[in-house]
Computed example of a mutant assay.
Amino acid sequence: MRSKTVTRTFINEISPHIDMPINKLALVRYKTIDSCLQNRFRKWTLEDLMEACSDALYEYEGMTKGISRRTIQLDIQNMRSEKLGYNAPIIVTDKKFYSYEDKGYSITNSPLTQQDLGTLVEVLDVLKQFKGFGYFQELTGMVTRLEDKLYTHQHKGKSYIDFEKNELLKGLQHIDLLHKAIINKKTVDILYQSFKAASAQNITFYPYLLKEYRNRWFILGCNKRTKATMILALDRIEQFKELRSEKYMKPDFDVATYFDDVIGVSKMPNQEPQLIVCKISKEHAPYIITKPIHASQQIIRGEKDGTVFSIHVIWNFELERELLGFGEQLQVLAPRRIQGKLRARMKRAVAAYESEKKE
């Protein structure tokens, strides 16, 4: 899903330079009709679809002019045809109610058309020109994903790359709208249910940055009521809406570097990074050397039985989990307080296993 989102965003950005087959307003209508017809708990007349499309165009584009009956009829005709590659199985029952014959159908699940493939090939050619530049290293993974996707569709064969993904992850539907809120500097009202809270709460929130960590997405921003910087997990957001009348407050810190001294996303206000010195066994040292735990990692010295290295980061739960993941192969040498915390956690883990053995 993420690669599709990135692709759509990039194509939208370069659309003035590409002869796109569908205009933006039509896409909004198609998406709205698609969402309506997926809703099997309601019967949709042509008038209902006209009203839904008018509401969507007002919400996204600020358009107050209504949609004509003829426009929606042409949209349905286009969605049914091969022109757009949708071939949508739209049927009419009782001569007035529209629905999908296939309950699981959606235009978002339709395969890429030859025109889509041609456009993506052009986009890939552009992206490949930047792959070698340091500032565009983050494009490398996206280009590889697109190349693999194109190969799969063009050759009707298997994909030979298996990217890390989590198909059951919640909250991904919020990414696009939150991204727009950040770009347009809009305040939002978020209904948020944390793991620790007994019930969901409404938060008036100024969004600043979307952050991904281990296939989970988070939003960095500020709570209007407490004025505190917060990091919210998208999978805990039940719903949110834009507060058009609420003034947006800009961040008083550098958002781009906020996570530079952190592994993961947990960070308390005014928390300072510290130098953590570790020793990794000789057997596992190559894993640390070839894939540093953090950008601040420095190799201090090599020893007969392992390698001593340091990282300069904030101590948090994610870092503890990262270091404990190496088990007996890694030892924290300093600071002693952190060494003691990890030792205590390991003792509790051993005690839990010993207790289970006795039972």
Rank of each mutant, 00 (worst) to 15 (best):
S3W: 09
K4V: 08
T5A: 14
V6N: 04
R8I: 06
S15F: 04
P21M: 04
A26K: 13
A26Y: 07
A26N: 14
R29E: 09
I33T: 02
C36T: 03
L37K: 04
R40I: 06
R42W: 04
R42K: 15
K43W: 09
Y60Q: 13
E61T: 03
E61G: 00
M63W: 02
G66E: 15
S68D: 13
R69Y: 06
T71I: 11
T71G: 05
I72N: 03
M79Y: 01
E82V: 13
K83S: 12
G85K: 02
A88P: 01
A88G: 05
P89K: 03
P89R: 00
D94F: 12
K95H: 12
K96V: 11
K96I: 09
S99E: 09
S99F: 04
Y100D: 06
D102Q: 13
K103T: 15
K103D: 15
G104C: 00
P111V: 13
D116C: 05
D116M: 06
G118M: 11
V123C: 14
F133T: 08
F136M: 13
E138W: 09
E138L: 13
T144M: 11
L146P: 01
H153L: 12
I161H: 12
F163E: 12
F163P: 00
E164N: 12
K170F: 07
Q173Y: 09
Q173D: 12
Q173L: 07
D176L: 08
D176R: 09
D176A: 11
T187Q: 05
D189T: 07
L191Y: 05
F195Q: 12
A198D: 14
S199R: 13
A200V: 03
Q201G: 14
K211T: 01
E212H: 10
W217N: 04
I219E: 00
K227E: 15
K227N: 14
A228R: 14
M230W: 00
I231V: 15
L234Y: 03
R236C: 10
K241D: 08
E242F: 08
L243Y: 07
L243Q: 10
E246H: 07
Y248C: 01
D252I: 08
F253M: 06
A256N: 12
D260S: 06
I263S: 01
C278D: 02
H294W: 00
G302P: 00
K304N: 08
K304Q: 09
T307V: 15
F309R: 01
I314F: 00
L319R: 03
E320F: 05
F326D: 09
F326L: 08
E328V: 15
E328S: 14
Q331M: 13
V332P: 01
R337Y: 15
K341F: 00
R348W: 07
V350Q: 14
E354I: 10
E359P: 01
